[in-house]
Design a protein around this nucleic acid. Sequence first.
DNA 1: TATTGTTATACTCTATAACTATA
DNA 2: TATAGTTATAGAGTATAACAATA
Lengths: 162, 162
Amino acid sequence: MTAPDPDGLLAEQLLRLTRRVHRIQKRHLERRELGITPAQSRLLRTLAHYGSPPRMADLAERLEVVPRAVTTLVDGLEAHGKVRRVPDPANRRVIRIELTDEGRETLRELRAARRAAASEILAPLGEREREQLGDLLNTLVDGPPGPPCEEGAAQRPGNGGN
Amino acid sequence: MTAPDPDGLLAEQLLRLTRRVHRIQKRHLERRELGITPAQSRLLRTLAHYGSPPRMADLAERLEVVPRAVTTLVDGLEAHGKVRRVPDPANRRVIRIELTDEGRETLRELRAARRAAASEILAPLGEREREQLGDLLNTLVDGPPGPPCEEGAAQRPGNGGN
DNA sequence: TATTGTTATACTCTATAACTATA
DNA sequence: TATAGTTATAGAGTATAACAATA
């Protein structure tokens, strides 16, 4: 039982953490009563990173989901007045997603919620450890220098993140 | 834009990683065609950690979900012959969950799947970094020495992990 | 009354497939 | 034909609430 499979154990912990992160984030979001779900929050924050309004397809890729999933999220956000669908004059198939003023307002609250969730999750870690973790996560999330897995890449909706 | 909120960014990356971990794990599971979902897999592996068959409630706490969620997972696993519900003679309210032989067999395949998923996820990290990450995750997941957040602990289904 | 697990229900998240309208 | 987004559908995962059996 002493760990013939350290990576497996690591994955195990990662999975556990994964669920906890989601749960905590959800709780903090609900507390603010913004009518925003975790996935919507993620889309909204992603939106803020763009210089100019991205297409649905851009968001799908960045969020690593299929385009159809973005439709649902944008539907919800638009219904709450947080974003706006704007047809692209240059290509009439394209729809661009714009943050509304209310969306920007919400974003501020989301940042506060995120900060609170982060501080709860990261409570057991000290300053130095957080830096370490940050570095590791950056490498993990952005870093895959190449497709690591050879097997038939089936349905993955996007892997070249960022 | 230079990051006035490092913890928030950290949380952001954690969230991103979180989704990716789930997606990758799911893909690896589907590839093996065991008829096991990620959550069922987690329950099964959790089961293996117990010396004697745990109660539903024990599993709920360990998995950090509400007991009702365990019912669904056990239903699925039992239907596939991976586990067995055994009434506890000492307390007739209690049901204990036992791994079947087939469940143990499946567990071996799950370990292989987990290992494959881990190696894909952790590909960008070297030996040393994995160790670091492992330590940090252990601290994060098992470590919260005390409830870090004072606000009304609403519905969290279980926090005293492990 | 408190505990254990369940039935009933609902919602979020995301996938695939088929369709529409462009290009 | 290829691209962008959609309608339709399905399934995983999990929550709350009300309830039954037992303690």
